[in-house]
């Protein structure tokens, strides 16, 4: 493999990693934009999605679409439940209360899940497909699907935010919650669709993570830290920023491996974050206004 191709393949690897992280960051940032806290339960929500998919597979349903639909359904129900029974009561209580509550929800979700599914790993029985080799660049079939799924998620999120009335209300709340309420926007009517959307994204992200890796109770939790970094780097509350930042961090991370090795790369996203925040405290794509 010649030099430039080697790096090109690394970029490819980074893109794939970044898409997974970007999807999780998208779910995080959507919550942040409207409810103003980093939702630590996101990772475990993804785990639940992966297990929902596995559950459908265990019923001998081979279709990834059906498995994914189950994952989306399970995650949306759980996300709405978490909002309805816990997070709803913490509105206006500040970032720390909400963050801690979401950590509690994350642990409770994982505990309940592992009580029933145990600690053994589960696998999606996806057939192994050979990659397309385009001018020496290896493109995996599964990664193409990943890219398509990510694109669909991002597009759907944008369509929801900018083309639907509920999206307009979400943006109004994101801009100024008090003003939005004063102008007659009912919180519940916005929050339920929001958490449903967050659940749907987590379901897709969880399925993708499950198909690419193995399904274990702690699988989603491990994605949380890099996803946090992507969310902040993207400018808190900026959906496109989160996905772009996720991809960017993935690419930088993989490109760095010939120089810093395979251990430092997992901290690299935070180092990049620290450097960029020193120069630009509002993040890459955050305007001063969005951050407030």
């Amino acid at each position: 493999m010649n030099g430039s191709l080697f790096y090109l393949n690394l970029v490819m690897n980074g893109l794939v990693q970044g898409l997974v992280i970007g999807l999780a960051a998208l779910a995080l940032t959507l919550v942040f934009a409207v409810a103003r806290f980093p939702n630590a339960a996101t990772g475990d929500l993804m785990t639940v999605g992966a297990y929902a998919g596995i559950g459908v597979q265990a019923l001998n349903v081979r279709s990834v679409i059906v498995q994914g639909a189950a994952a989306i359904l399970a995650c949306s129900v759980l996300a709405i439940g978490q909002y309805w029974f816990v997070l709803r009561y913490l509105r206006g209580r500040g970032l720390v209360s909400l963050l801690l509550a979401s950590i509690g929800l994350a642990l409770a979700t994982r505990g309940a899940l592992s009580f029933f599914v145990g600690q053994d790993q589960y696998l999606f029985n996806t057939p192994i497909m050979r990659p397309y080799v385009i001018a020496g660049l290896r493109v995996q079939v599964v990664d193409l699907w990943l890219a398509v799924a990510s694109l669909v998620c991002v597009t759907a999120t944008f369509a929801m935010l900018f083309l639907t009335p509920v999206g307009r209300r979400m943006r109004a709340i994101a801009d100024n919650a008090e003003l939005a309420r004063a102008s007659g926007i009912r919180m519940q009517r916005v929050m339920i669709p929001l958490w449903a959307a967050v659940g749907a994204i987590c379901g897709v992200a969880g399925m993708i993570l499950g198909i690419k890796t193995v399904v274990l109770p702690e699988a989603g939790w491990h994605i949380l830290l890099p996803a946090f970094a992507a969310m902040v780097l993207g400018g808190l509350g900026n959906p496109i920023g989160a996905v772009v930042a996720g991809i960017l961090l993935g690419v930088v991370q993989e490109l760095s491996t010939p120089f810093v090795g395979f251990t430092y790369k997992i901290a690299l996203s935070f180092i990049v974050l620290a450097v960029i925040l020193t120069v630009r405290p509002q993040g890459l794509f955050g305007s001063a206004e969005v951050v407030r």
Partner: peptide, 21 residues
């Protein structure tokens, strides 16, 4: 220099950097 929402994540990242080092 940062607002509190950034600080939570940056400090989380700091601990991770320490561990990786």
């Amino acid at each position: 220099r940062l607002r509190e929402d950034y600080l939570a994540i940056v400090t989380l990242g700091f601990a991770e950097i320490v561990r990786v080092v």
